[in-house]
């Protein structure tokens, strides 16, 4: 089977011509780097994306903390993860990289903070 996909690994956005059968990738053409070949394999058999969002934070000078999954997760799980994210509320202080939710929705990825927020008593 053949399929043309656009690599999303970096802003270059290479057009990948992928040749594959039921089990494996046979050939990938058009990739500028080896991330493209890796992406093609995943995209054909089990597409994955990184989810980035925000959670509520109390005691910081801003109301929201930006977060991400620390690796890409199955595309099918994205909306379950978002539902879980809506429920989370945490307390400042928090450091960039701190785990907010381990193995979120059984995706294998941890939800981590992408920002450092100190505790403050100052009302925004």
């Amino acid at each position: 089977m053949k399929k043309t996909i656009i690599c999303i690994s970096c802003p270059l956005g290479c057009n990948l011509a992928v040749e594959y059968n039921n089990k494996a990738i046979i050939r990938v053409l058009g990739n500028a780097c080896n991330r493209g070949a890796k992406y093609a394999g995943k995209e054909i058999f089990s597409p994955e994306r990184v989810v980035t969002s925000t959670v509520k934070i109390m005691g910081a000078r801003v109301p929201l903390l930006s977060v991400k999954t620390d690796c890409s997760v199955s595309k099918e799980k994205m909306f379950d993860i978002m539902k879980q994210i809506f429920k989370i509320q945490i307390e400042a202080p928090i450091n960039r990289g701190s785990i907010i939710c381990k193995n979120i929705c059984g995706s294998g990825a941890n939800l981590v903070a992408t920002r450092t927020l100190d505790k403050t008593t100052q009302i925004r």
Binding site: C10, P11, R96
Partner: peptide, 22 residues
């Protein structure tokens, strides 16, 4: 810009906006 895709050239890794800023 809380999405990722920043820093691939600069830091050789994919960061979100706040991470790149920090």
């Amino acid at each position: 810009c809380i999405h990722n895709g920043f820093g691939l050239h600069r830091f050789k890794e994919e960061l979100t906006g706040p991470e790149y800023a920090e």
